[in-house]
Design a protein around this nucleic acid. Sequence first.
DNA 1: GCTTGAATCTACAGTAGCTAGAGGATGTAA
DNA 2: TTACATCCTCTAGCTACTGTAGATTCAAGC
Lengths: 142, 142
Amino acid sequence: MLTIGTLAKKTGTKVQTIRYYEQIGLMPEPGRTEGGQRRYGDAELDRLSFIRHSRQLGFSLDAIRELLDLSDHPEKSCDEADAIARRQLRQVEQRMARLKALRTELKRMVHECSGGRTADCRVLEVLRDHSECLTEHDDIGA
Amino acid sequence: MLTIGTLAKKTGTKVQTIRYYEQIGLMPEPGRTEGGQRRYGDAELDRLSFIRHSRQLGFSLDAIRELLDLSDHPEKSCDEADAIARRQLRQVEQRMARLKALRTELKRMVHECSGGRTADCRVLEVLRDHSECLTEHDDIGA
DNA sequence: GCTTGAATCTACAGTAGCTAGAGGATGTAA
DNA sequence: TTACATCCTCTAGCTACTGTAGATTCAAGC
């Protein structure tokens, strides 16, 4: 039986985060000691590892909820899990493309900085001037 | 004189967002009509454009605050603005490297999916198994 | 001058995914 | 038994917005 702290260490999660996952129903309510402290078993360790690994791959908590549900029903078709993963892959690729454009513009800004007074600063000038900008108007999203 | 709605359209910002920027002190309190509606001039248009462009490049509101401050003092040295931009560039590069690793793993997951039952699903299996994972334990950050 | 309808106002709540702190109870080793 | 790390609940805070409710204002058309 693991305390919440041990579980936290084993999975690289903060204690608060585990309680948060319980609160939103992503982790089940565990057993308790007489004094009311949580005690976890291997099933919970596996589940939390799954969650954390998925988070590291950028899946949203909602997506993880779906994946966990699929994982709980081995007789279901694999298609859904595959679709979720593909969606995630598309998102990652979109973000990469976006970051690439940002990097280009940032590099341009930085390399052209003369090192003088801010009055002549290329960094600020580029930020002021939208016209030679590659990025679109909407969807700032991280 | 521009209404808040016109300013919003011109800069690709939501009206609420402009009011939010005012609330946190990023935009100045504008003049008002007798009835209490906000009216903006060109200075505000420029400032908001600067903010939005910076946001599109991924700068945090705090960083933008610094940049605006520098921009307001043309006699200051350019070094600081350059440092902020370089910091941002580093962040973008880190994120890209991270996304690249994620993409690799996601691709592996997706390509190996057999299309059968979830019991044999590679996607779920990979998420369950942390051992062959490239990503580190901490810093999930977007 | 009057009406209509779009735009604006304030204030507050909600989003994701946690994180931090207060103030008190519990568990365990010496 | 005592010390002290860890645990408990509850609440508030973070970033950067977004959405809603209900009331008011503005500008155009008649």
